[in-house]
Design a protein around this nucleic acid. Structure first.
Length: 271
DNA sequence: AGACAGACCTGTGAGC
DNA sequence: TGCTCACAGGTCTGTC
């Protein structure tokens, strides 16, 4: 599920249950995530106080007295707060138990997600170095896209999905933002004007901000929630809408593989 | 440096 | 019902 809006929604949902709490244990039922989880971290974590729950790109960052947990949801991961002590389900790989008796429970069928523990400064962490700006920050704008794209021959879709360009633009929102900006996803990144990149930066911000807002309404209850909500599909213009009419011109939406991923666009509105 | 293919792993839905 | 296949929201690594 997780693109940036889902990760941010998760952060907002779980932070109130964690901030200020003291960690009791880390329960590792399945250490084989993308990178192995070391159950011995539990001893080091026990007694540490959770100072904050932040996000950088699609990484959740939990500050535990100066050390850090870095949590990534991968393709199929989710986090929720368990307050009723219920037994874990299938694929509930990890619990972070705090002193209220609640726990943050990680479920991930595909195990592409990961949890890292580090006592080194986050700024030097290899997973976080080299990341581009946050899409909703002022540092991200059309001028940045324009400058970084000069000489690049890769598709604009691949370019905006590259975390060195800007973080948090995943496959769904890349298609959506390019549609909103009227740019063909296969167009070479280096051959797009300043003005069009200004429109694309705006479209990325608009699309992500709207999705976060919806996440806030559809995913509000992060404790004990059972069902995972659908994917805001009602508000998507082109993603997963192949062969249905474009909302602007009624041409049929196309699906093609671009930048090695399924890509949806209107062949008439996007040039 | 930049571009691409392949890798990780399980679940789901389509088609037979 | 049960098999096989294609495909799925991310990102790292290796190779040219």
């Amino acid at each position: 599920m997780p693109e940036l809006p889902e990760v941010e929604t998760t952060r907002r949902g779980v932070a109130p249950f964690l901030s200020g709490r003291t960690i009791e244990t880390l329960v590792v039922r399945e250490p084989r995530l993308r990178w192995p989880v070391d159950p011995a971290w539990s001893e080091n974590l026990a007694g540490r106080r959770i100072q904050s729950v932040d996000r950088r790109a699609k990484y959740l960052l939990i500050d535990v007295d100066g050390a850090h947990l870095i949590w990534h949801l991968g393709m199929s991961g989710s986090l929720r707060v368990i307050t009723d002590g219920r037994a874990p389900d299938k694929h509930d790989h990890i619990d972070l138990v705090v002193d209220t008796g609640h726990c943050l429970r990680f479920n991930d069928p595909r195990r592409f997600g990961f949890l890292l523990f580090t006592q080194a400064p986050l700024a030097k962490h290899p997973r976080l170095m080299g990341l581009g700006p946050e899409p909703l920050s002022e540092a991200f704008n059309g001028e940045l896209l324009y400058r970084r794209s000069r000489g690049r021959r890769t598709s604009v879709k691949g370019f905006v999905m590259d975390s060195a360009t800007v973080v948090g633009v995943g496959n769904i929102y890349a298609s959506e933002a390019l549609f909103l900006a009227g740019i063909h996803p296969r167009r070479p990144a280096g051959r797009i004007s300043r003005a069009r990149y200004a429109a694309l930066a705006d479209a990325i911000k608009t699309t992500l901000a709207a999705a976060i807002e919806q996440g806030g309404t559809t995913l509000r209850d992060f404790s004990d929630s059972d069902g995972r909500p659908g994917y805001f599909s009602q508000s998507l213009s082109v993603y997963d809408r192949a062969a249905t009419p474009c909302p602007h011109c009624a041409s049929l939406i196309r699906r093609e593989v671009i930048a090695q991923r399924a890509t949806y666009f209107c062949p008439r509105c996007q040039r």
